[in-house]
Design a protein around this nucleic acid. Structure first.
Lengths: 217, 217
DNA sequence: TAGATTGTTAATCGATTAACAATC
DNA sequence: TAGATTGTTAATCGATTAACAATC
């Protein structure tokens, strides 16, 4: 019944999770919203508001139990899930993502890799063979993956997404800026990682540091 | 005089830039805020508000000239800058970032790579040799880089940032979640790319799709 | 001129912050 | 019990949307 939790709140959860994990490793057992607000650069009010979207995890006069809260937030984020995940596009970026990220125990399990480059077919990354994109249908009908990571080049993304949505994939971790999945498939979950956009934003910020207001003055 | 443009607006600019680039390549010469709003999934009102933070680029009764607006937004974002950029941490991820991204003509110029792994020192990526992190001071005093890309491992980030800030680096494209630069160095420009956070957010979204409201309901 | 569409002001909506009673 | 700190309601602030006069 409680109303839909806003995306702003959701996006802060991983950061809470990180800070609490750090505290936990540092042997801190309890923390107040005030202390945590100091460490994270937020207001104590916001922290309490955020957490109370999901339940009353604290105790008056005491604060929050670090370990309990850490696990609660993990559970809220779905770290206890086990979403079967495939990666499409095993170039520079796809390879780095596959090798660099922890999937196991963080809600995901990597089960398949796909690429069209004949030179790398059969090669293994993280113990998984790279398969031709042609085999997507066969593989997905058998394995029923939940999530796809997209590191596909310009022209491939749109078609791959359409095929995957038809095959029941309902979450996309999308590195390809060339096709707006959320716009075209309103029913699926999408997280875009648009590195180019981020780099441009940084460029603006640096410029703004040097010359606030720019030409406008 | 005009008040500070909000980060929400800034973050939409690269997306406008992408859509306008696409229209331009497609041979579209003019577009109204209404048409563009349809294509981008925004309101026409928001587009006009956003653009008018920087100036009146349109014409009543006509709309916007696609090419002119594209270039204006590029200039606002600083695509005409030429920030000297170094990359620290040339592992899986750093390598992919160096190889995958376009820096030239997008406001940046990659001038140096640094890593501590002795096995890869001297290797070249994108025509640049990988140097030991020890040489950071010497290099930065000579080259005076503006921006650093951080793909450093857990324990390295904090120290590297402190050294770089002292050396005059004032923009950070940060892939390392282990140290909050903005919190510790309020005067510099920071864009965080926290892939782990994004992956967790996706996990929540997928879970929420399957079971809206979760346990709370 | 008439029609279209901007630039801009006003209204609405949502998110953040402040305040405080409840309670451990 | 007294002190601390939460959970929650109310106030503020900022961002988005709507409306419309200006103007091409």
């Amino acid at each position: 019944m409680g109303k839909q939790v806003s995306i702003s709140v959701i996006r802060r959860l991983p950061r809470y999770y990180r800070f609490l994990g750090e505290l936990l490793r540092g042997g801190v057992h309890r923390i107040s919203s005030r202390e945590l607000s100091g460490k994270m650069g937020l207001t104590a009010s916001q922290i309490r508001q955020d957490l109370n979207c999901f339940g009353g995890f604290g105790q008056q006069g005491y604060g929050y139990n670090v370990e309990a809260l850490f696990h609660e937030i993990g559970r809220i984020l779905g770290m206890d899930q086990n979403y079967k995940t495939i990666l499409v596009g095993v170039g520079n970026l796809g390879r780095a993502v596959a090798n660099h990220m922890t999937f196991d125990g963080r809600g995901y399990r990597l089960v398949g890799l796909f690429d069209n480059n004949p030179d790398i077919l059969g090669e293994t990354v993280r113990g998984l063979p790279i398969r031709p994109v042609d085999e997507l249908e066969q593989f997905c009908i058998e394995e029923k993956p939940d999530v796809a990571i997209l590191c596909t080049p310009r022209e491939a993304t749109k078609e791959v997404v359409n095929r995957l949505v038809a095959l029941g994939v309902r979450g996309f971790w999308n590195y390809s800026p060339h096709y707006d999945i959320a716009l075209n498939h309103p029913g699926v979950a999408v997280e875009n990682v648009h590195l180019g956009d981020s780099l441009m934003t940084l460029c603006y910020k640096v410029k703004d540091l040097d010359d606030p207001e720019g030409d406008r003055g």
